[in-house]
Lab assay of single mutants.
Amino acid sequence: HNGKLCKLKGIAPLQLGKCNITGWLLGNPECDSLLPARSWSYIVETPNSENGACYPGDLIDYEELREQLSSVSSLERFEIFPKESSWPNHTFNGVTVSCSHRGKSSFYRNLLWLTKKGDSYPKLTNSYVNNKGKEVLVLWGVHHPSSSDEQQSLYSNGNAYVSVASSNYNRRFTPEIAARPKVRDQHGRMNYYWTLLEPGDTIIFEATGNLIAPWYAFALSRGFESGIITSNASMHECNTKCQTPQGAINSNLPFQNIHPVTIGECPKYVRSTKLRMVTGLRNIPSIQYRGLFGAIAGFIEGGWTGMIDGWYGYHHQNEQGSGYAADQKSTQNAINGITNKVNSVIEKMNTQFTAVGKEFNNLEKRMENLNKKVDDGFLDIWTYNAELLVLLENERTLDFHDLNVKNLYEKVKSQLKNNAKEIGNGCFEFYHKCDNECMESVRNGTYDYPKYSEESKLNREKIDGVKLESMGVYQILAIYSTVASSLVLLVSLGAISFWMCSNGSLQCRICI
């Protein structure tokens, strides 16, 4: 991952900044910058967002509201009850120091605090018919004063009620008058409520006091790749198909172990950190130390980045220098085999997901714990399936590479015959000098055995068991695999060879 928040398929997220979902939807004055928000790819909250409900109280069923919003990608904020005409018999300019803005008392931008007009609070009834052709999110509140005197001074009615009804919602609220500790300079409380109004449905408000009335509502448009994440990451000019709280993932790998919460087309989250597919040879310690064997393909974004291909070729060293050249036929066979294998694994496992966190309130801790156990169970199954699949494929890959290298080895052996000696570690020792032209003939299969047989015969008789390297004779190393990324691999195959001279070296080696 890149540690950044990015656009998702070209669409920017909605960053709530210092506000949370509650503050944004109710219209906390400190969240005025969010009022123009219309569309987004996903919503970003920060872990310690401080601006929620400015007048103390709870947004009821907040967790369910977050779940609903996680599939919303755009909205239209509109005046559901026009301020100047909807409440002619009531005062609608209630403000509070708890919702101060720029040093002055204020109130929510989407709600109206209705109080008595003169000395009376006549029963009010108002309704709205949803003609938007889509779901409408309606929010309101109920004020709970701290004393009967406060109730009387604001609403005149000691036994007030609030009723809200639609086809799918029907509740009646009565204020709970009680002494409470002071929070944000208030002994009173406000509880906030919401409902989704279906197209064509009607919502009716009736009250004799204590109503925090809707002013603006939201017509919602769903987008199934949307979601809500909690993150401290910063926004950058970048684009992605998959976003996590820790950063964007741009990967076609089937798995990731970065974060379980994802938005967009994302690899499946697994616990494993070692889900690797081999593309090189079986481990040979001396070669492995030099980083030549054991190439791997990573299938977990965050564990290993991208696929690494092994390729086969020849390396030689003689009086004229040293050089490398790919054996294109065996390399292409290996590439085709690995590509098919990788595609097979991805096809089997690479279903892209959006995974969002589930919200539970403080009273639902047991449910949250149960949900976590269920999620953990599914996660263990996914991890096991992934590891088992790759384990089985790896064994076949190792066998496949062994065969490829063996074929190259036999190709060289059949040409050199007794003009060189096998020394048991995949290397041959020449009994004759071999210049670049000679080396090329070994690589392309045109090695002239009779041409060098007499010199080889004489050297075999002279050496008589002495280690060949100390006599200045020449080696050919018969097994060799270097490691390159897919891009470098293609470039390498396009070149005939490249040279690395070893000044004054008397050794001649050709490596497979």
Score class of each variant (00 low, 15 high):
residue 232 N to A: 13
residue 240 T to L: 01
residue 240 T to R: 05
residue 245 P to N: 05
residue 250 N to P: 00
residue 252 N to E: 00
residue 265 E to G: 03
residue 266 C to Y: 09
residue 268 K to H: 06
residue 269 Y to E: 04
residue 269 Y to C: 02
residue 275 L to I: 15
residue 279 T to I: 10
residue 284 I to T: 14
residue 284 I to C: 09
residue 287 I to H: 11
residue 291 G to K: 04
residue 294 G to V: 06
residue 297 A to Q: 03
residue 301 E to H: 01
residue 304 W to E: 06
residue 310 G to F: 10
residue 313 G to Q: 11
residue 315 H to M: 14
residue 317 Q to Y: 14
residue 321 G to H: 01
residue 321 G to E: 05
residue 325 A to L: 05
residue 331 T to R: 06
residue 331 T to S: 15
residue 336 N to Q: 15
residue 340 N to L: 04
residue 342 V to R: 04
residue 349 M to S: 02
residue 349 M to Q: 01
residue 350 N to M: 11
residue 353 F to H: 05
residue 359 E to A: 12
residue 360 F to C: 07
residue 361 N to I: 05
residue 362 N to E: 12
residue 362 N to W: 14
residue 364 E to Q: 10
residue 369 N to F: 08
residue 372 K to V: 08
residue 372 K to L: 09
residue 379 L to P: 06
residue 381 I to P: 02
residue 383 T to N: 09
residue 385 N to C: 09
residue 387 E to G: 03
residue 388 L to R: 11
residue 388 L to I: 09
residue 395 E to P: 06
residue 404 N to W: 04
residue 405 V to R: 03
residue 405 V to N: 07
residue 408 L to F: 11
residue 411 K to M: 09
residue 413 K to A: 15
residue 419 N to S: 07
residue 419 N to G: 08
residue 420 A to Y: 15
residue 422 E to L: 10
residue 423 I to Q: 12
residue 424 G to R: 09
residue 434 C to P: 04
residue 439 M to H: 11
residue 440 E to D: 13
residue 441 S to R: 14
residue 450 P to V: 11
residue 456 S to C: 12
residue 457 K to F: 12
residue 457 K to I: 12
residue 461 E to Q: 10
residue 462 K to H: 07
residue 466 V to F: 11
residue 466 V to H: 03
residue 468 L to S: 14
residue 474 Y to E: 07
residue 476 I to L: 13
residue 477 L to H: 07
residue 477 L to C: 14
residue 479 I to N: 06
residue 481 S to D: 07
residue 481 S to Q: 14
residue 487 L to M: 14
residue 490 L to S: 15
residue 491 V to G: 11
residue 494 G to I: 01
residue 496 I to Y: 07
residue 496 I to V: 14
residue 497 S to P: 03
residue 497 S to F: 09
residue 504 G to T: 05
residue 505 S to E: 13
residue 505 S to D: 00
residue 506 L to P: 00
residue 508 C to Y: 14
residue 509 R to P: 01
